[in-house]
Computed example of a mutant assay.
Amino acid sequence: MHARAVAASTTALLGTAALLFPVSPARAAGGGVPLVIAHRGASAYAPENTLAAVDKAAGLGIRWVENDVQRTRDGELVVVHDDNLRRTTDVEEVYPGRAPWKVKDFTAAEIARLDAGSWFGPAYAGARVPTLEQFVNRVERHHQKLLLEIKNPELYPGIERQTLKVLGNEGWLDRSHLAGRLIVQSFSADSVRTVHELKPAVKTGVLGTPPMGDLPVYAGFADQINPSYRSLSRAYVSAVQAFTGPHGRPLEVLTWTVDDAATAQRVAGYGVDGIITNKPDVVREAVGG
C-alpha cells in the first residue's frame, strides 16, 4: 500500500473511532502526567526482577513496579525475564552439565541456589531469583503497585490460572488491589484473553503494537495496549485511546522501555498513560511526575 493510501485510511479510522468513542479533551491534547513504571524494578540500579530492584524503586519513590513471571519444572512461579537462566544468574557454574539452562528444566529449590546479583555488581552478590509470592509480598511491603507480565505462556500451559491463584492467595485480588494496584499483561493476546475470562475484574494489557483495525477486538478483553516506544506515534496513541475497554473506560497506552529524558518527553507529548523504564528517576524528572 502506498504511503498516501495508508495515511488516508489511518485518518478515516481515527475519525470513525472518535465518533464512536469520543476522547476526552485532556487525553486528546496529551494532558496529564504519565505513570512511571519501574521496569523489572529499578533495573538500571539493581539486578532486574530481584527484591533488591523492588527496594531500589521504592527508595526512589516509584509506586509502580513491573516484573516477569515464568514456571519451574516442579510448578513454582518465579520472577525472571529470560526463558533460560544464563544471563542473570551463575547457573552455568552451579549446574555446568545442564545446558541450555531453561527455567522450565529446573526445580524451584535448584533455582533458589543461584546467585542472581553478582552479574550486576559485587554489592548484590547473593541476591536470589524470587518466587512470585516473595515478589508480591515485597511490593506489598512498600505499598507499591504491580504490572505483572506473564512471560512465554506457550511454554507453561495453565500459567494464567496459576498466576491468579497465587495473586489471590497473597491478597492481591481483593477490591483495593483490583481498583488500582494490579495490571496483568502479556505479549500473548490469547493469554490476556484467558486472564480476562478467568477473572474479569483484573485489569489487563496486551504488549505490542496490534494493527489499528484489530483494536475493536482487543478492546473486548484488554484495558491497555502497551507498545515499544520505537513503534509509537501520536496517531496510534489517539487511535487506542478512542476505544472503550472491558471495564467501560478508554483504553490506555503504556510504552516501553524509555530510559532518557528526551524520549520520555516525546512519548509523554503523544499522550501516553504510562512509561515503563529502567531509570524511573530520570523519566519522572523529565515528565514532571
Rank of each mutant, 00 (worst) to 15 (best):
A12M: 03
A38K: 01
G121P: 13
A108K: 04
L155E: 01
E48L: 07
M1C: 05
G117N: 08
F106I: 07
A222W: 08
V195P: 07
H2K: 14
D115H: 07
N152W: 00
D55N: 11
E160Q: 07
L19N: 13
A268I: 01
R193L: 03
I62V: 09
G59Y: 07
V217I: 14
G248T: 01
G31P: 06
R87G: 01
G269N: 07
L147A: 02
V240W: 11
V206C: 11
V129N: 04
A5C: 05
A123P: 05
R230K: 15
L114S: 13
L173W: 10
P22L: 14
S24H: 02
Y270T: 00
A108V: 14
A38T: 09
A99M: 02
A12N: 09
P227C: 11
V282F: 05
F187I: 05
S176T: 14
G289F: 11
T16D: 15
S9K: 06
T204K: 10
V237A: 04
M1P: 00
L178W: 15
V103R: 02
G248H: 12
V283P: 05
K104E: 09
M212K: 02
V33L: 14
D115Y: 11
A112Q: 04
A112P: 06
N137S: 15
K165R: 10
H143E: 01
A8P: 02
A109R: 00
L173M: 13
R40C: 10
S238P: 04
A8V: 09
P246R: 09
L77T: 11
